[in-house]
Computed example of a mutant assay.
Amino acid sequence: MQNKKTLILGATPNPSRYAYLAAERLTNKNHDIVPVGIKKGEVFGKEIEHQTDNQELTIHNDIDTITLYVGVRNQPEWYNYILETNPKRIIFNPGTENPELMQKAREKGIEVEVACTLVMLGSGQY
């Protein structure tokens, strides 16, 4: 199976959240993860990257997939970061569907999927 380096946008150290479960399952299936969000902490040995007052977020240029766990109303502040990262695809998990961001991604040649990362991993469609 090919390793698909996955940026988890909306990562959290809270084990009751779907973003945490995605990090766990991606790690268990040997996909490299890059957790990014507003929460501090770590998930599965990776520090959650977050913006600080004096430091911008690192733009990763080797990301296969961004899986979104940020609600639509909080997404606009992430648009530039997502589009500059330029992944091969973005997975819009339930509750994150955003026609505006989907259009911007498609215009850059980024594949858009409205799906659930956990279901995709469980069914071998990832």
Rank of each mutant, 00 (worst) to 15 (best):
Y81L: 09
Q55A: 12
Q51V: 10
L21Y: 13
I66L: 04
G71S: 14
P35I: 09
E100Q: 14
E24Q: 14
L83I: 09
E107Q: 08
V70Y: 01
I48C: 04
P35H: 10
N54D: 15
Y79I: 04
D64S: 12
V114M: 10
Y18G: 06
V34F: 03
H50C: 06
T96R: 04
H31A: 11
K88T: 08
I38T: 14
I48W: 05
F44E: 06
I59S: 06
V36E: 02
K104V: 02
K46N: 13
N28I: 04
K108L: 04
Y81G: 07
N54W: 11
D64T: 10
K88L: 09
E42P: 01
N54I: 12
F44W: 08
V114C: 13
N93T: 09
V36W: 07
Y69S: 06
V36R: 07
P99M: 10
Q51D: 05
T96C: 14
N86Q: 14
N28Q: 14
T27R: 04
K108A: 01
E84C: 03
D53M: 14
R106W: 01
A105C: 08
R89A: 00
K108Y: 04
G95L: 13
G109P: 01
I66K: 01
E42L: 02
I63W: 01
Q75M: 13
D64V: 04
D32S: 14
E24I: 10
E113C: 04
K46G: 10
N98H: 03
N80D: 15
C116G: 08
A115P: 09
